[in-house]
Amino acid sequence: MSAAIDTWIIVADDAAVGGLIEFARMRAGRLVAVVAGRKSVADEVATAGVDRVIWLGQPPEATPVEAFAPEVARLVGEGLPRAVLGPDTTAGRALLGAVAVRCGGPVFTRVSALELDGDRVVLTRILFGGIAECRESVDGGPAILALPSGGHVIATGIPTPVEQVEASPMTNAEVVDRRSAELVSVDLPSAPMVVGIGRGLKAQADLTLIEELATALGAELGCSRPLAEGVDWMPKERYIGISGQHIAPRLYMAVGISGQLQHMFGARDSEVIVAVNSDADAPIFAECDYGLVGDLYRIVPALVAALKTPR
């Protein structure tokens, strides 16, 4: 099993594709990066130890990277790799979607493994937000994967020369204004401790209670989706779930969170999960290491007190 798979990586104007390159390198034969976007991005990807860097040329300032989708698809169609990896961002999905149409196959997401079984590419992926897993073989065209792009690339010696190709992006979309948002100070995915709060909280003012627990643990504060996109008590950057943040802390303490599948998908990689919920039948108790069944308004202060008690 697992011989070389020629792999192309699609870069959507963001050089933070370290995860994609790492994923590809585990089973790659030749590794080719197709870079849509700025030259600086192509130059950075060229340091990552890939075999070829194909750059689609400097786009006009006003051109969104998605406008390169047809050209990316054309290049991949001509190159005929066995696997195509791209970032699972909306821009990445726009480029991969064009590749998928060109190659006549689906884009796969949430893929955990890719290998060669005899002459066939076989992948393992999670279905329906994590309730099932499957292995599938892909024949007749490349396996096209949208994956978490990972952090910055790791430089490995002499950069690969950047080959520029002629490319004409679509011209019907123009960026006329860009505004940077306030810097997001929270980095939930790399936090070693996370406290998550959900709909069990009755009022926004009660967040101070949860903040005390987070402080006592030295934890970052996260939340379930209703608190970020329903009542707006918490910023969206703190929402943990399938379409939000994916966390992997040493400890995740989920307070007043029922444990809906979509939330747990973002929390499942936590080493230890502690749940506090008044409903003994809440699904989170099936997915936790330690569960406290009861009123969070009584349990959270008790947890804070216990944490302040020396061991």
């Binding site: 190659c103 006549g104 196959g105 689906p106 076989v122 099932a132 897993e133 499957c134 292995r135 599938e136 073989s137 892909v138 024949d139 007749g140 065209g141 490349p142």
Partner: peptide, 9 residues
């Protein structure tokens, strides 16, 4: 064009 066959679940 691409044929996807489920091997296992």
């Amino acid at each position: 064009h691409v044929v996807v066959s489920r091997v296992a679940t």
